Computed example of a mutant assay.
Amino acid sequence: MINPAFAQLMARYNHWQNDNLITCADALDDEARRQNRGAFFGSIEGTFSHLLWGDGIWLSRFCEDPPPPGDIPASTSMIEDWNVFREERMHMDRRILDWAENLSAAWLDGDLTWHSGALGRQVTRPRAELVVQFFNHQTHHRGQIHAMLTASGMRPGDTDVPFMPEIYAG
């Protein structure tokens, strides 16, 4: 299905796109970032917050990192200070890059069992499928952030993988 090189590419893409969207969102004030824009998680900031939380949840399952506090509804309120969030996001992206660099094909071949708070039960799925979900979840919600930024008059940069700058390419 996938291999470690896929995860490494997507980890670099994740880092690039978070930088892209956060740099664009930096031009907005707190009120504009917190404005409810009708997205699933409400605002630009709420969606960024959910992404940070979601990445922490998946890494807690993949690497036994401690999970972030809260649940899906609370995931939108993790950002109290934009600059602190930027640092936490940068740290998370570094953690994802490190995880991907150390990923083995053997690990991807196995299954993962965890308790899903969203479903309220234990779930077992192939790890490779869950890694795809991990990166797809990021891309999905970053697309929502991109749309909200565009609607607010901002202009995020490129999003296409082949246009990823060399600085992120590894």
Rank of each mutant, 00 (worst) to 15 (best):
M1G: 03
I2Q: 05
I2N: 01
A5F: 07
F6K: 01
A7C: 06
M10V: 08
M10A: 09
M10T: 05
M10I: 07
A11W: 02
R12T: 06
H15R: 04
W16E: 04
N18G: 07
N18H: 02
N20V: 05
N20H: 02
N20I: 07
I22M: 15
T23R: 15
A25W: 04
A27F: 11
A27Y: 13
L28W: 00
D30S: 05
E31Y: 03
A32M: 04
A32E: 01
R34C: 06
R34F: 00
Q35E: 11
G38V: 07
A39M: 06
F40K: 12
F41P: 08
F41G: 10
G42S: 04
G42P: 02
G42N: 03
S43R: 01
S43I: 00
E45F: 02
E45K: 02
G46P: 02
T47F: 05
T47L: 11
F48Q: 09
H50A: 08
H50V: 03
L51K: 01
L52F: 04
W53N: 05
G54E: 03
G54N: 11
D55H: 08
G56R: 01
R61Q: 06
R61D: 02
F62Y: 04
F62N: 02
C63R: 12
C63A: 13
C63V: 00
D65A: 13
P66W: 08
P66D: 14
P68F: 03
G70R: 06
D71H: 15
I72M: 15
P73K: 04
A74T: 13
S75N: 13
S75H: 01
T76A: 14
M78S: 11
I79E: 12
E80Q: 14
D81T: 00
W82H: 07
N83R: 14
N83H: 14
V84H: 00
F85G: 02
R86L: 08
E87D: 07
E87S: 11
M90L: 15
H91V: 14
M92V: 11
M92I: 11
R94T: 14
R94W: 06
I96H: 02
D98E: 10
W99K: 08
W99P: 07
W99I: 11
W99E: 06
E101Y: 00
N102L: 06
A106Y: 10
W107K: 06
G110R: 08
D111M: 10
D111L: 14
L112N: 01
H115Y: 15
H115Q: 11
S116Q: 04
G117H: 07
A118T: 09
G120M: 02
Q122N: 00
Q122G: 03
T124G: 10
R125V: 04
P126C: 14
P126Y: 04
R127Q: 10
R127C: 06
L130A: 15
L130W: 12
V131C: 13
V131Q: 11
V131T: 13
V132N: 12
Q133N: 14
F134E: 04
F134P: 03
F135T: 06
H137K: 10
H137I: 09
H137N: 13
Q138W: 04
T139L: 01
H141I: 09
T150Q: 05
S152C: 12
G153D: 01
G153P: 00
R155W: 10
R155E: 14
P156S: 08
D158N: 11
D158A: 15
T159I: 13
T159L: 12
D160R: 08
D160T: 08
D160A: 07
P162H: 02
P162N: 08
E166T: 13
I167Y: 15
Y168F: 15
Y168G: 08
A169T: 15
G170P: 07
